[in-house]
Design a protein around this nucleic acid. Structure first.
Lengths: 129, 129
DNA sequence: ACTTGACTTGGAGTGAACTCTAAGGATTAC
DNA sequence: GTAATCCTTAGAGTTCACTCCAAGTCAAGT
């Protein structure tokens, strides 16, 4: 699979795909004899994983570290586990923060809806609350 | 309340507080006769709101727009409501993405735990999956 | 009055994650 | 075989959200 096809499949730019490989966020991609990237199943799995982690907001640095450990072999399995657990914790915390903000947004939205419905404001100050 | 006190209360740098005001993410803060920031209740509410939105990952730009609309008066209430609804949608989407990634992390974590427990790998390839 | 420490502004610098450019090599279509 | 298109790399540029700096002003203590 060429870089163009992969870029279309995952809706991510070719530049980003090359960037991910260059910084080590995915291991080196299989090449043709001419040196052109020819993504295999395994390469695609890494791309998919990278996109998944990034779209949840996890840092590139964490993926780089994971790939580095992975390439060092089985003795890094405990370290990899720890890394994954840390990232999981970060995501759970991020989710809690989102829930807090959603509650606030919902409160404000309901107030604005009531204001529009009744044709007037149902509060005086504190519109920022 | 001085900028120092606010910075300590919310655990955010004074630079960031000034930055938020400068870019319009919060309305201009009350000043003393000498021109020094003296945060009142209303100013603090805005700061709190800004911190809440930012810590959920919402863009600074969205808050700037909200504040701009707010300062224009009541006729922007429908626009403000729309903005809030859009941001809520963005957060819900972000949450879905986090859940997807959490599932994947949990799967990998359980596999690594089993690998460590049994002292050997329970899978051959696909460590990236 | 003077020192000390906190505050002010405008503007420059930083780190993360892309994104683009230039110069050139590889592949496919005719 | 050659034109068109896609690919390659190295490195520069961009955007976002701060973060830091310089030069100067303000406020509290002695």
């Amino acid at each position: 699979m060429t870089i163009k096809e992969v870029s279309e499949k995952y809706n991510i730019s070719q530049d980003t795909l090359r960037y991910y490989e260059r910084v080590g966020m995915i291991p080196p991609v299989t090449r043709t004899s001419g040196g052109i990237r020819d993504y295999q199943e395994a390469d695609l799995s890494w791309v998919e994983l990278a996109i998944c982690m990034r779209s949840a907001g996890l840092p590139v640095e964490a993926m780089i570290e994971y790939v580095r450990l992975y390439q060092e072999g089985d003795q890094t399995i405990p370290a990899r586990l720890q890394l994954l657990v840390d990232q999981k914790e970060a995501l759970l915390e991020q989710k809690r923060q989102i829930d807090t903000t959603l509650e606030r947004l919902n409160y404000k939205i309901s107030r604005y809806e009531k204001a529009i419905e009744t044709g007037k404001l149902t509060w005086e100050k504190d519109a920022c609350k």
